[in-house]
Nucleic acid binder design. Structure first.
Length: 354
DNA sequence: AACTCGGGGTG
DNA sequence: CACCCAGAGTT
């Protein structure tokens, strides 16, 4: 068994050293930078996350700098990356490390787990890369590589699957260089043992891979099907006053986009025409707060903004008003607020803001 | 154990 | 269109 482990780890790491990408966070073992990169890369492709990593490291050179920033600055830098709880938890964890630990990250697995937004994967990654802790990472790449190599059909999104793959990954870990090994395994999954149409004929493990030998590569890993998406109907009221102000509101309730800004929103159960929307507004606090004169639809066809679990059928309505807006903000200032991509797309398309 | 949380890339 | 991405937190 030990020979098998050594064979796997040695060949994997040799492949890694020949094929690894030169990524910005691979030139340091500073836990601040490694932690930051790992949070950004949760459920996020390297290509998408890299510009954000560079922006954050440029804005905040250390954890105390990040901790001292206002939340809105953090959210604005995070804008467009999605899963915004990561940004909120990142900030909470930074303040904890800066204020309670004097800027020094925990150097144990259990200590790292205490940080908001740090779960088993991230604690294992930071621990192994920064502190040489013998903690195996299990991310989407690891599930795929190990399920194929060992022909394991246990669904990866079940309690049993999570337990089994973590256990296997831990057995396989090269404890003499856990950080390099962990990154090698993930890199191999990301660059070679890819989800669709992997180049198995050229794989260094083709004679060891259970899935390849049994023609099960396309069927692994197994994942239980997820719930269907819900449809929602959003009507954003883009208020324009004669003195060049508009209104943004912060989302404070649970659900999507917590703490981000948007135009006043009227959600309906179906796509509505203008007269129906006006009636909806009559019962909404918007009409009591603002004296709207005209309401015109920006575009007839609703924008369908697709999230993982929701499809947002969205229309923007332009409302002119002569009244001075309570809590109005200058139109020129809207780009200072952190907004969902759905809103930023509209802002860049709407000529009334230019 | 099931749900929720984004946005974008891929075939 | 379905699936996936260097997962974590809540219910």
């Amino acid at each position: 068994m030990k020979e098998t482990l050594d064979f796997f780890a040695k060949n994997l790491i040799d492949w890694y050293l020949d094929n690894k990408r030169d990524l910005p966070w691979r030139s340091t073992k500073d836990p601040y930078f490694i932690w930051l990169s790992e949070i950004i890369l949760q459920q996020t492709r390297v290509a998408q996350g890299t510009p954000y990593y560079l922006a954050f490291t440029s804005a905040f050179g250390d954890v105390k700098s990040l901790a001292a920033a206002p939340q809105q600055k953090v959210l604005k830098l995070w804008q467009g990356l999605g899963y915004y709880s990561r940004a909120r938890n990142l900030h909470i964890a930074a303040k904890y490390v800066a204020n309670e630990l004097d800027g020094r990250f925990p150097s144990t697995y259990k200590g790292l787990l205490q940080l908001k937004g740090v779960g088993d994967y991230t604690a294992s990654a930071v621990g192994s890369i920064c502190f040489d802790l013998p903690t195996a990472v299990v991310d989407g790449n690891v599930y795929r590589v190990l399920s194929r190599l060992f022909g394991i059909a246990t669904p990866i999104n079940t309690t049993q699957g999570i337990k089994d793959f973590k256990s296997l990954a831990q057995q396989l870990l090269d404890t003499s260089q856990p950080g390099t090994y962990n990154q090698a395994l993930m890199e191999f999954g990301a660059r070679f043992c890819v989800p669709q149409n992997p180049n198995c004929a050229q794989c260094i493990f083709k004679y060891k891979c259970d899935a390849y030998k049994n023609k099960q590569v396309a069927n692994l890993p197994v994942k239980l099907k997820k719930v269907k998406v819900k449809k929602r109907y959003f009507n954003y009221i883009v208020i324009l006053s004669e003195n060049g102000n508009t209104v943004l509101q912060q989302r404070t309730e649970k659900g999507i986009w917590q703490q981000l800004y948007e135009f006043p929103l009227v959600e309906t159960t179906h796509l509505v025409a203008q007269d129906a929307l006006c009636k909806e507004i009559q019962f909404d606090h918007i009409s009591t707060l603002y004296d709207l004169d005209t309401l015109t639809l920006f575009r007839e066809n609703a924008v369908v903004h697709k999230l993982s679990h929701q499809h947002l059928y969205t229309r923007f309505w332009i409302a002119q008003t002569k009244s001075k807006l309570p809590k109005g903000i200058p139109v020129d200032d809207i780009d200072q607020y952190a907004v969902p991509v759905l809103i930023s797309n509209f802002i860049s398309e709407f000529e009334g803001f230019k």
